[in-house]
């Protein structure tokens, strides 16, 4: 009888205050959280932090090193690098936030439909997911850019399409295991329709792992955006982006090293922050995945 009870149990992670305490007591998690908060704060208060417009030219002061007027120096068009980094962070976060929430929501819906719906729907969706995942991301991205032209929206579109299967798969697996649980049968026995079951009883149980996955996906999206912009097929100039700053730095590496540092460091910091935070959250909310 103990066996029956144990098999039916669903792990319940800690809630509220307990989770916060455990996050802050994990040094890497706390460090990650601090980095993430820093990056987010800079992006939000970009208008206050930047003394210049990111696109304001000042040809006479090209390639200046860090000084009181330009904290991180200026680029080949005399634009203030610090302002461009700050506004570039806004772009990076904006892109990743939009892309991740879009692919998360679509992935959740499709994953739950695949897991709970009829067999043929599951098979079809899985086929589509596999097909999408089997394209190399960069090749797919270049093809899409060629068709749609480079823009912020194209970057978001690419990221959304390629990451939907990631969420879709994990949500489908969770849903499949949930649907055999007795409480789902109990809901159906009460007369609850499939949409009520999915919304009220499946969603709360699958959203946790999906959100953790999403927080670990944000740095990936940031690097994809930076990478595409670096290749010149991402955000259109003169809009600032960490990737295009890096590209400028690469082109003018003989004139100044500061552009490379200013474009690269924020990518590293943001990626590390979100990764540490995501791993700490996963350890707290999904103890089964912890390595001990």
């Amino acid at each position: 009888m103990a066996v029956i009870a144990a098999a039916g149990k669903i792990e319940i992670g800690p809630r509220g205050a307990g989770a916060w305490r455990r996050l802050l007591s994990d040094p890497l998690g706390a460090f990650g959280l601090a980095l993430v908060l820093l990056v987010v704060a800079i992006a939000i208060f970009a208008d206050l932090l930047a003394q210049y417009s990111p696109t304001q030219l000042d040809i006479r002061n090209r390639f200046s090193g860090p000084n009181a007027a330009h904290w991180l120096g200026s680029d080949h068009l005399g634009r203030d690098t610090f302002s461009r980094v700050v506004y570039g962070g806004r772009i990076a976060l904006w892109v990743s936030l939009i892309a991740v929430s879009l692919s998360l929501s679509i992935g959740l819906v499709l994953g739950m439909l695949a897991g709970y719906g009829p067999r043929w729907l599951d098979n079809t969706l899985m086929l589509v997911f596999d097909a999408v995942r089997s394209f190399p991301t960069i090749m797919f991205a270049l093809a899409v850019v060629t068709i749609l032209g480079p823009s912020l929206n194209t970057v978001i579109f690419i990221v959304v399409v390629t990451t939907i299967p990631v969420y879709g798969r994990i949500v489908r697996t969770q849903t499949l295991s949930l649907r055999t649980h007795e409480f789902i049968l109990a809901e159906r026995a009460l007369g609850a329709g499939p949409f009520r079951v999915l919304l009220h009883h499946v969603l709360p149980n699958v959203i946790g792992p999906a959100l953790i996955l999403a927080s670990m996906e944000i740095p990936v999206v940031i690097t994809i955006e930076a990478g595409l912009s670096f290749l010149g097929v991402g955000v259109r100039p003169p809009t600032p982006s960490w990737g295009s700053i890096l590209n400028d730095g690469y082109a003018f590496i003989n004139d100044t090293p500061w552009l490379i540092i200013a474009g690269g460091a924020p990518v590293v910091i943001t990626t590390l922050g979100f990764t540490f935070l995501g791993e700490a959250l996963r350890d707290i909310f999904d103890p089964r995945l912890r390595r001990e």
Binding site: I4, A5, G8, K9, I10, I12, H181, E182, F183, L185, A186, E187, H200, H201, P204, N205
Partner: peptide, 12 residues
């Protein structure tokens, strides 16, 4: 249901 704990939605 046989196992009342399992037949109640865990997050409700």
């Amino acid at each position: 249901f046989q196992d009342p704990q399992a037949s109640l939605s865990p997050r409700k």
